[in-house]
Design a binder for these strands. Sequence first.
DNA 1: ATTGCAAGTGAAACAATGTTGCAAATATAG
DNA 2: CTATATTTGCAACATTGTTTCACTTGCAAT
Lengths: 136, 136
Amino acid sequence: MNTTDILKSHDIKKTPGRIAIVKALQESELPLSENEIKIQMEEMYDRITFYRNMQVLASAGIVHKIVIDNTIIKYGLSCCGQEHRHQNEHAHFYCEKCHSVVCLKEVRIPDYQLPSGYKLFDSDIIIKGACEKCSH
Amino acid sequence: MNTTDILKSHDIKKTPGRIAIVKALQESELPLSENEIKIQMEEMYDRITFYRNMQVLASAGIVHKIVIDNTIIKYGLSCCGQEHRHQNEHAHFYCEKCHSVVCLKEVRIPDYQLPSGYKLFDSDIIIKGACEKCSH
DNA sequence: ATTGCAAGTGAAACAATGTTGCAAATATAG
DNA sequence: CTATATTTGCAACATTGTTTCACTTGCAAT
Ligand SMILES: [Mn+2]
Ligand SMILES: [Mn+2]
Ligand SMILES: [Zn+2]
Ligand SMILES: [Zn+2]
C-alpha cells in the first residue's frame, strides 16, 4: 500500500507533513524517534504540526507510539487496515546499548489474570536488553 | 521495617526529605505520583531534591518508578531487602477511569521468547483497563 | 560535645517534550 | 474555480527533568 493510499483509506487529508512522516516510517525497518523522523523531513519539519499529525495518525491506527520511558519515545508503522487498539498488539524490545527499538510481532500479549472485578482494555510490554548486534 | 531502618540498611543518609518520601509511600496502599507525595510533604517539598532523592531511592531498590506513559509516572515502595532489578518484578495496572496504579504482585512476568541473539535484562508490563471500583 | 568533611540541599538557569489559541494557508468536495 | 472545513505555524505556556554552584547538614571520629 503506498503512502497516500494509507491516508486516503483512513479519511485523513493528504498533507505534505503527514506524507513525509508516513514515508519516513515506511522506509525504516525500525520504529523511529521524533528526531529521526525530523531528519528525514528536513526543513519541512515543524514541532507543533508534527505532534498534531502524530496524534491523528496514532488515533487512526496508522502508527503506534512506543513509550520506553518518559524520555525515549518511538513511533512505529502499524499494519494498516487495523485500527482497533486490540488488533496489531505486540511487545516491543528496547536495546539498552544502541537504543534501538524493535517491534516483536511474534511476541503476543498473553491474557493476564487480573484480580476479580478488573477489566482489561489494553497492555504495553517493553522488554529491555541487548539486541543481536550488541550482545556479544 | 520502619522508615529510618530502610534507609540505614541501604547505607543512605537519613535526611528529612528522604524520610518524608518513604513515609508517604509506606502510608499509601497504592503507588503515588510526585504530586501526591508533594502534598504529604507540604512545605518541605523541593522539586530538585525530590528528583535527586527519587533517583537515589530507586537505584537502591527501595522504590520503583512506574511509567504509564510520558505524562503519568508513579512511584511504588519495593519489598525491601531486594535491590536486584530482576527481583521484585511484577506487572502494573493502570485504571484509565480513576487514574490509579496498582502493583500486580501476583502477575509474574513470563519468560518471553526473544529472537535469537537477543539478551533480556528487564521488562516492564503496563496493563490498562478499569479497576474494580470503576468497572461497573 | 565538638569538629571535619563528604554528602545533601536549594536557587537559578537550562533543556526536552508537549499543549493551546489564533490568524493565515490549503486540501478537497461540489 | 470556489467555498469551507481542516490544517498549519507562530507565540506563549505547561510539565518534567537536569546541571552548576554556594551553602548546609548528617554522621563518624575524636
Ligand atoms: Mn510495534
Ligand atoms: Mn510495583
Ligand atoms: Zn543494540
Ligand atoms: Zn479506577
